[in-house]
């Protein structure tokens, strides 16, 4: 899932400054699961903004909507009529959702309420950690299912750096060294041979920005 953080209230307030009719749009997928941009969080942001405006004696009108997801046109279309009643739209989706919304309604000002952080997992209650950097050339088969590109602070492909210490990373004693984890996992699986050979440098040309993928069945149409 994509994990995001809510932007600080002050930042969102200053983004919408001078606008009186604001539509806050949540997303029912990842950001809902990581408790940052779902229906509940839309409600919270709406009341925070109302309160802040009330304190300053300003009158604002805030609408709330939460779509199934913001990365699909069919759901975004549902805002078609409603969106016209507002001056600005604050999207609580990930960066992709914000952009898709802005693209469909390009006559409206669309603002982000989140900082998109990473592709990750729910490690525990209220704790999410990164697992994948979407490098477009997955090496997990060789590294025992632990991603060196993501889990190693330096993204090293050929073993630990000199900063590794007692299984921890040089960057922080709180962080496990990816290469100790990889070594131990492969050792347990009896597959250390898979990291004995020199791993070639990553090919960055397979991750051109922006990424684009077309399903085989739809290639003709394109």
């Amino acid at each position: 899932m994509i994990v995001a953080d809510r932007k600080p209230l002050e930042q969102i307030s200053s983004m919408i400054e001078g606008n009186n009719k604001i539509l806050i749009v949540g997303c029912g997928e990842c950001v809902s699961v990581c408790m940052v941009g779902g229906e509940k969080e839309v409600e919270i942001l709406a009341s925070q903004l109302r309160m802040a405006a009330g304190k300053e004696g300003k009158k604002i009108e805030i609408g709330e909507a939460t779509l199934e997801r913001q990365c699909d046109k069919e759901y975004l279309e549902l805002l078609k009529d409603r969106i016209e009643n507002y001056d600005v739209v604050v999207s609580m989706a990930c960066g992709a959702g914000v952009q898709f919304l802005a693209e469909m309604y390009d006559h409206k000002i669309v603002l982000p309420a989140t900082n998109t952080r990473f592709i990750g997992v729910t490690e525990g209650e209220g704790v999410w950690t990164e697992r994948c950097r979407a490098c477009s050339d997955c090496v997990l088969a060789e590294t025992g299912g632990i991603c060196p590109v993501t889990i190693c602070a330096k993204g090293l492909l050929n073993g630990p750096c000199g900063g590794t210490n007692d299984g921890k990373c040089e960057v922080s004693k709180e962080k496990d060294c990816a290469w100790t984890l990889i070594y131990n996992r492969l050792n347990k699986l009896g597959r250390l041979d898979s990291i004995r050979e020199i791993f070639p440098a990553k090919k960055y040309n397979v991750q051109t920005r922006p990424g684009r993928r077309i399903h085989e069945a739809f290639k003709e149409k394109e």
């Binding site: 330096k154 090293l156 492909l157 050929n158 073993g159 750096c161 070639p200 440098a201």
Partner: peptide
Amino acid sequence: VFDLDSVL
């Protein structure tokens, strides 16, 4: 950066 590592 770390495009390469020491081995590479």
